[in-house]
Amino acid sequence: MTRVVVAGDVHLGSSNANADAFNGFLDWIYRTRDDVAELVLLGDVWDLVRRDPFGCAWETHDTIMRLKRLGEHLPVRIVLGNHDTYLRTLDASLYDVNFSDHHVVHQRDHSIRFCHGHAFDGFQFDRLSKRLSGPGDRGEIDPTNGLKDPVVAMARASVRAGTNRVRSLYTAVTRGARFEPVRYPRRERRAHAYLDTVPEDKLVYGHTHAPYVHQDNLAANPGSWKSTAPVHNTYLVIEAGHIELYRYRRDGDDEPIE
């Protein structure tokens, strides 16, 4: 029983959150609970930016009950994210839930730090998040009707492509060397650099909704459960310090992602 399962950025309460798939994922963990050491949720499980917390909890009662059932058999860790406004004010001792800004797991010769990751995102502005999250009550939290995620993804891709072109030109002019494109976007590189400031040797974070595992298995992001994300319903499994990425499938075996 050494496997740690990691998911994040479900954004329950949002109209484009794949709640049914996430509930199926929790049911799968419950069925295989004897093989799971703990479940780590990397924040933004609920979309609570300018949202009525009671209404969101009422609408997601099925998920809450699944998490409660799981918590009776294995540790369920919830790392707080930038959308977890109201969860920060809860008295966790009254609800028997483990809330924290980060979590650390030791496996074999590795120590792994878990956090949400919004501190690494140069595009993260609280005022902008609130503006894009609508007026608040009864699910009205995305006035863009699901267009926000793909538009933001395209904007980030354009910025990255432009940065690569500038660096390519700069390298050709100043060094005359062949340019190697940057493998990871700036927000991922900032996360990787964060490892130099903490005692842990691996980092697992969320927030960006972009699932990946670092080529050297030093960092990873489980992705999101929002249907508007290009790749969604993904999660991580960590065993003996090794991180692997999967996509959840309700029918058939889950799909490993390289």
Score class of each variant (00 low, 15 high):
residue 18 N to P: 02
residue 182 V to G: 06
residue 143 P to Y: 03
residue 77 R to P: 02
residue 190 R to P: 02
residue 257 I to M: 11
residue 152 V to I: 12
residue 241 G to M: 11
residue 87 L to W: 14
residue 44 D to T: 07
residue 103 H to S: 10
residue 137 D to K: 10
residue 228 T to S: 05
residue 25 F to H: 04
residue 190 R to G: 02
residue 141 I to D: 02
residue 237 V to P: 15
residue 103 H to K: 09
residue 16 N to Q: 04
residue 228 T to I: 02
residue 19 A to H: 02
residue 177 A to G: 06
residue 114 F to Q: 10
residue 97 V to D: 05
residue 4 V to F: 08
residue 46 W to F: 15
residue 242 H to D: 15
residue 168 S to V: 00
residue 90 L to D: 03
residue 246 Y to T: 10
residue 194 Y to R: 08
residue 40 V to I: 15
residue 223 G to E: 01
residue 54 F to T: 15
residue 203 L to V: 06
residue 210 A to F: 03
residue 147 L to M: 06
residue 75 P to M: 07
residue 109 D to V: 14
residue 135 P to N: 06
residue 130 K to W: 12
residue 84 D to P: 08
residue 238 I to E: 15
residue 70 L to T: 06
residue 210 A to E: 10
residue 68 K to W: 09
residue 95 Y to R: 05
residue 93 S to A: 14
residue 46 W to P: 15
residue 122 G to S: 14
residue 117 G to M: 07
residue 56 C to V: 14
residue 6 V to I: 08
residue 236 L to I: 09
residue 22 F to S: 00
residue 113 R to C: 07
residue 130 K to E: 05
residue 136 G to F: 06
residue 5 V to I: 14
residue 49 V to T: 15
residue 158 S to V: 09
residue 244 E to R: 15
residue 132 L to C: 11
residue 245 L to D: 14
residue 40 V to N: 07
residue 218 L to D: 12
residue 186 R to G: 11
residue 42 L to Y: 02
residue 242 H to E: 15
residue 231 V to Q: 13
residue 104 V to A: 11
residue 76 V to T: 06
residue 174 T to Y: 05
residue 196 D to P: 13
residue 33 R to G: 08
residue 134 G to H: 00
residue 118 H to I: 05
residue 13 G to F: 00
residue 66 R to M: 02
residue 228 T to L: 05
residue 87 L to Q: 13
residue 8 G to Y: 00
residue 138 R to L: 12
residue 25 F to R: 02
residue 225 W to T: 01
residue 239 E to Y: 09
residue 94 L to I: 07
residue 151 V to Q: 04
residue 58 W to T: 03
residue 77 R to W: 07
residue 246 Y to M: 09
residue 141 I to M: 02
residue 179 F to L: 03
residue 115 C to G: 08
residue 100 S to C: 11
residue 249 R to I: 05
residue 122 G to N: 12
residue 214 H to N: 10
residue 140 E to F: 11
residue 186 R to S: 11
residue 105 V to S: 09
residue 81 G to I: 01
residue 7 A to T: 11
residue 189 R to T: 03
residue 231 V to Y: 06
residue 225 W to G: 01
residue 44 D to A: 07
residue 209 H to K: 04
residue 220 A to G: 14
residue 250 R to E: 14
residue 174 T to I: 04
residue 137 D to H: 12
residue 142 D to Y: 00
residue 131 R to A: 13
residue 248 Y to G: 05
residue 166 V to F: 04
residue 11 H to C: 01
residue 3 R to F: 03
residue 152 V to R: 02
residue 160 R to V: 09
residue 197 T to R: 15
residue 28 W to V: 07
residue 230 P to K: 08
residue 116 H to T: 00
residue 127 R to L: 13
residue 207 H to G: 01
residue 171 T to K: 12
residue 73 H to R: 10
residue 16 N to C: 01
residue 246 Y to R: 11
residue 88 R to K: 13
residue 234 T to M: 08
residue 1 M to I: 13
residue 192 H to I: 14
residue 218 L to N: 11
